[in-house]
């Protein structure tokens, strides 16, 4: 890659994720600068709803600050707070969009968010160790050789022993196997871990989904249910790591290699798994569905 091109490269953690999922996708999105056409949805799009949820959680922890703040709330207070931050989150929606989706949809989304936050706080309440939410929507960057990747970390919690855990909100089904292997499916949190000033003691998805709220993560401390600390067991068959330290080193290598490959112009059409192409949208360009026919 030429030195002229480097400053134009955009894309934060998605760059590494794309390179990992399919090198051609990273090439197309970040060097050819194409994006897939958006899908039409009946009301709020999944992306919009995802950012509304992020916004609400941001506001929520701005108010609560720490586990103590959460535990001293009464049921009614919690209900009121959830409702208030949900309503406030909805005000961030563009006014054109508000009009387009209609008042009823906005009202329903507020209701849904309120009850979802309630469900989520039940998970937070079940955490045994104390914590402070020390960073929200925190901007950081990580340097991978010549490549600088800009990151926005959803949340960092500081535990009683001052160790930090990095948390990423997700409304989709999440699993830690997405971090393992030479080409991790979702390397976002790994990048956050790499960027952190001090080594985090755990990484975790906060899976905020109706009827399926839970933490999913790995680390040296089991700061919540769903966060595993038995590294050999959790990585068996997918990575060679005896402990958390080694796993982090391994991740550092994987991420660096992906960045190097991107910079070296590795642009093979090589999707990671059978589902990788489902939401990509660039099939007309990569022509993955139309390999060379034999009887041409």
């Amino acid at each position: 890659m030429s030195a002229d091109e480097l400053p134009v490269i955009r894309g934060g953690s998605s760059l590494i994720e794309n390179q990992s999922q399919c090198p051609f996708r990273a090439f197309a999105r970040h060097r050819l600068h194409v994006s897939a056409p958006g899908e039409l949805t009946a009301a709020l799009s999944p992306a919009e709803r995802g950012s509304l949820l992020h916004e609400a959680l941001y506001l929520l922890w701005g108010q609560l600050e720490d586990s103590e703040g959460l535990h001293k709330l009464t049921v009614e207070e919690e209900q009121q707070l959830c409702s208030a931050v949900s309503a406030e989150a909805l005000t961030t929606l563009d006014s054109d969009r508000r009009r387009a989706v209609g008042a009823a949809c906005v009202a329903l989304e507020t209701q849904r968010l309120t009850s979802l936050l309630g469900e989520w706080l039940a998970v937070e309440r079940s955490r045994e160790a104390e914590f402070r939410v020390t960073q929200r929507e925190h901007s950081q960057q990580v340097t991978l050789g010549p490549l600088t990747v800009k990151l926005q970390v959803d949340r960092i919690d500081t535990l009683a022993d001052e160790r930090q855990v990095i948390i990423d909100y997700k409304s989709s089904l999440s699993k830690v196997t997405d971090w393992l292997g030479e080409r991790p499916r979702r390397p976002q949190l790994l990048l956050y871990g790499l960027a952190a000033e001090s080594h985090p003691s755990a990484l975790a998805f906060a899976q905020v989904r109706t009827r399926d709220c839970q933490f999913v993560g790995l680390g040296e401390t089991e700061f919540a249910t769903g966060v595993a600390s038995d590294i050999p067991k959790a990585t068996r068959g997918r990575a060679e790591a005896a402990d958390w330290e080694q796993l982090n080193t391994l991740w550092g290598e994987h991420l660096q290699r992906l960045a190097d490959e991107f910079l070296a112009g590795q642009a093979d059409v090589d999707p990671l798994g059978p589902d990788t192409c489902t939401w990509c949208g660039l099939q007309s360009l990569c022509r993955v569905n139309h390999p060379v026919e034999v009887d041409a």
Binding site: A42, L44, L108
Partner: peptide
């Protein structure tokens, strides 16, 4: 019917595409 529809939408996580 608005009330009934709203209840159904809420039950399906306000996912209009799915209910549609």
């Amino acid at each position: 019917a608005a009330e009934d529809l709203a209840a159904l939408l809420l039950h399906f996580d306000n996912n209009w595409d799915r209910l549609q």
